[in-house]
Nucleic acid binder design. Structure first.
Length: 819
DNA sequence: GCGGATCAC
DNA sequence: TATGGTGATCCGC
């Protein structure tokens, strides 16, 4: 079995090793590669490329060599060029920052100083030193280095463990609410355990020594090991890692070691035990000991009054060590005092560079420049900086709420346009599967593109309601992709990465609400007010407004409309704008509607079975489109055929927005484009069933065969395929409000039957998917939550699980190891 | 809401 | 040899 080292670690390995370069040497090599006039750029780039040593415990590797390799290899590459470009952007930001700084008057500084000192006093007042937070960090990286250096070890199983397993196994005993952060880190709040443990009998603090433990190496001389047993496990223990020379258990008093037998019996009785004390240090010793017994991997740990400090502490004596900041203010400030800001979680390369430009390198600098900082940075930022400089952080472990986005992306060698669409579809498919696993429905689709020059672009669209299937996601993503293709046309899009992200998930409460509405709507004998279903307020709560930014479809329509406007009179255009109608979701009749209220009244009547056709006719001369565009549920806007089409002989447009909420059964994406002006007809129909991705169906008989286009043709077709859009000459085309598909039939009865089927499919699916629990709709709260605080280490939020779980699963060695 | 950018792991 | 994937947040617009 090979080394289960993920790419993250590989890259980290390279970067961190490179990070050990001596500054002057780094500068030299940078100067060789760049314009020598631009010294700052060279240094900046090195910082950008991760060549600044931020990690502790990095001694002994040939840093210069690695540095040189990276720089030499990068020279002239697209990647390198892009790094340079990004670095220049940061430099520009810094220039602006300094310009701003120069405009600041002494008076402003003095005023800011007073204000900041107020905040400092308040923060000091609220300083909480009562908690004992532990940050555990597995030393997997060092194990990986060891494995690399000892090729003969590669075939031996080694655990690159996940903290969630140590959940269950060890960590939960110390803090049932402990917080795993990814695969190799976890936070624990051991405050309560510390109290309880004081009364614990020694037997509860005693642990058997089953295998060699480097966590006990500080007391190694006091333990007698069975040599034969030791050699069995030697493969998992790197001499470099476990040797006395790098042991750094600085603050250990050390647990009492007990032999089950007398000394003279030890050679025949290998079983030993060790008793850990009741102090925080001993507890963490115990945790690390037990982790190592379980996984044969060492861990480092930090103990401090808050999470930010604990995390930095775990870095202090890495690898295989621990460090504690006692809970008093002076100790905290002493630790913080000379600490480089780059060591603070949340302060990355760019922030470091910007602060450095202001002469801020250490946390003390940060504190001293608090007035300046408050004038140059946003409030979120300077509050964050101020807390850092005071050594303040979160004292409780907050679990993350609901997931906010889900994405998948892939890097590849340059591919053709057709392949790009195909890949896009695959990404959507993957995403849809993941969404299904978590039962999520999203509102926003974001396409991420990185071109061969490493330039990254994202393009997003928010749809009216929610989407979750491959077809639904792809319908949006392919528009975005097509739009970008159009932007660079006639050149092809030259990509190296494509990604699709969905966000804006329906909360659990919203799901319930939506489901309830639909069920009530259909439930016979149970009346639900139509206004509740379709009123502006209700709809706005359930479905977001359409995006300000128009989709590719809409942009296309807009373009067409503009073209039209140039050939039609302004009067006709005005008529066009005024004429519209709604389709009643109950009787499916068209209604020219003077107001939303009137339309709602009609639906109410329909629902109660008293609706007459006259109602529809009584609604006319509507200008409600503008007012109801955000509502647009089952609404439809079109030309007045009688007024426009007959007079002008021009195209008649159908513009519709359909609720996706119940759209759970769309199997085939069928879109017809028919442009009478230029005699161009296109049919773009794709079957999106997984099994039939390449199936090609022609569901329309009216389309000219000459101009047929399909998305997934073989590469022989070199023409860029732009997303299609509905553009009908016949405004009587019926669009199913559930599946959003145009129906071939013009028979209303047949059409209604189709809608019924669609609707039922959706309901059944939702009923089987959703579990029951009551709750109130709280969309507003959800949407603002993300802006409340910054997500830095001081405020710990648990990472989302699904993708992490994926990567966990990929580590087959872990599972087998823990078994 | 969108897009670019930063950061963590 | 040739520079990753996922998720979150912030900021300016």
């Amino acid at each position: 079995m090979g080394l289960p080292l993920c790419q993250v670690r590989k890259l980290q390995l390279v970067q961190n090793m490179a990070a050990r370069g001596k500054p002057e040497k780094l500068l030299d090599s940078a100067m060789e590669n760049e314009n020598k006039d631009d010294v700052s750029s060279g240094v900046g780039l090195l910082l950008r490329m991760g060549l600044n040593d931020n990690k502790a415990g990095m001694q002994g590797l040939d840093k210069e060599k690695i540095n040189k390799i990276i720089m030499e290899a990068s020279k002239g590459s697209k990647f390198y060029e892009n790094e340079l470009k990004k670095d220049q952007q940061v430099n520009k930001r810094i220039e602006k920052l300094l310009e701003l700084k120069n405009k600041i008057t002494d008076q402003q500084i003095m005023k800011a100083q007073l204000q900041m000192d107020q905040f400092v006093m308040e923060m000091e007042r609220n300083r909480d030193l009562s908690c004992t937070i532990v940050h555990i960090d597995m030393d997997a990286f060092y194990a990986a280095v060891e494995m690399r250096d000892n090729p003969e070890l590669r075939d031996k199983p080694i655990a690159v463990g996940s903290m969630s397993m140590l959940v269950r196994e060890i960590l939960a005993e110390y803090d049932p609410h402990f917080l795993p952060m990814g695969l190799d880190e976890a936070y624990l709040n051991i405050t309560e355990h510390l109290e309880e443990r004081k009364n614990w009998d020694e037997s509860k603090r005693k642990h058997l020594i089953k295998t060699n433990s480097s966590a006990l190496d500080g007391k190694q001389k006091r333990i007698m090991y069975d040599e034969s047993k030791l050699s069995e496990n030697a493969h998992s223990c790197s001499p470099d890692l476990f040797g006395d020379d790098i042991l750094k258990c600085k603050q250990n008093v050390g647990p009492l070691l007990h032999s089950e037998e007398e000394e003279h019996q030890q050679s025949t009785a290998p079983t030993k035990s060790v008793v850990f004390g009741t102090s925080a240090e001993e507890i963490v010793e115990e945790i690390r000991f037990r982790i190592e017994q379980k996984t044969r991997l060492t861990a480092s740990a930090g103990i401090a009054p808050n999470t930010m400090l604990a995390k930095m502490c775990s870095d202090q004596n890495k690898p295989n060590g621990q460090y504690r900041i006692p809970p008093d203010r002076e100790a905290v400030m002493n630790f913080i005092k000379d600490l480089a800001i780059r060591k603070v979680p949340g302060i990355g390369k760019v922030t470091e560079k910007m602060l450095r430009a202001l002469g801020i390198v250490t946390c003390t600098d940060l504190y001293q420049q608090r007035a300046l900082i408050s004038l140059l940075f946003s409030e979120t930022s300077w509050r964050n900086f101020l807390e850092i400089s005071l050594g303040l952080g979160s004292t409780h472990l907050e679990r993350d709420g609901e997931r906010k986005s889900m994405s998948t992306e892939r890097t590849f060698n340059e591919i053709s346009t057709e392949e790009q669409y195909k890949l896009c579809k695959e990404l959507c498919s993957d995403l849809a599967q993941d969404l299904k696993k978590e039962g999520l429905k999203a509102r926003t689709v974001t396409l991420k593109l990185k071109n061969i020059n490493f330039e990254v672009k994202t393009r997003a669209t928010t749809v009216l309601s929610t989407i979750s299937t491959e077809e639904e996601i792809f319908a949006v993503a392919k528009d975005l992709l097509g739009s970008e293709m159009e932007n660079v046309a006639p050149q092809p899009l030259r990509l190296r990465l494509m990604g699709v992200r969905v966000s804006g998930f329906l909360t659990e409460d919203e799901k319930k609400y939506q489901q309830k509405s639909i069920v009530n709507f259909l439930e016979p004998g149970k009346q639900v007010s139509a206004s509740k279903l379709f009123s502006r307020k209700s709809v706005e709560e359930n479905f977001p407004r359409p995006p300000d930014r128009e989709s590719f479809f809409n942009k296309k329509r807009a373009t067409r409309q503009q073209d039209m406007a140039s050939v039609t009179s302004s009067v006709d255009q005005a008529k066009y704008n005024e004429c519209q109608f709604f389709i009643c979701p109950v009787c499916f009749e068209e209604h020219q509607d003077s107001s939303l209220e009137a339309f709602n009244r009609h639906i109410d009547k329909c629902l109660s079975g008293t609706s007459g056709k006259d109602d529809a006719k009584s609604m006319n001369n509507s200008k409600a489109w503008e007012n109801t565009s955000d509502l647009s549920l089952y609404s439809k806007k079109k030309d007045c055929q009688k007024d426009n089409a007959s007079n002008q002989g021009t195209e008649v447009q159908a513009n519709y927005v359909v609720d996706y909420a119940t759209n759970t059964s769309m199997d085939i994406c069928s879109i017809v484009q028919n442009n009478e002006h230029n005699n161009e007809s296109r049919c773009i129909i794709s079957s999106d069933r997984a099994s039939g991705m390449h199936e090609k169906q022609d569901l329309t008989s009216e389309v000219s065969s000459v101009e047929k286009r399909e998305y997934f043709e073989e590469p022989k077709c070199t023409e860029i395929k732009l997303p299609c859009f509905s553009y009908m000459s016949d405004n009587k085309i019926l669009v199913c409000p559930v599946c959003n598909l145009e129906q071939k039939t013009k028979d209303l009865a047949l059409f209604n039957r189709h809608v019924d089927i669609c609707l039922n499919k959706g309901i059944i699916k939702q009923l089987t998917e959703n579990s029951s629990s009551a709750g109130t709709l709280d969309r507003e709260q959800h949407s603002t939550a993300s802006t409340i605080g910054t997500k830095r280490a001081g405020k710990i939020l648990q990472q989302s699980t699904s993708k992490k779980a994926k990567s966990t699963n990929s580590k087959c060695t872990i599972e087998s190891f823990f078994k």
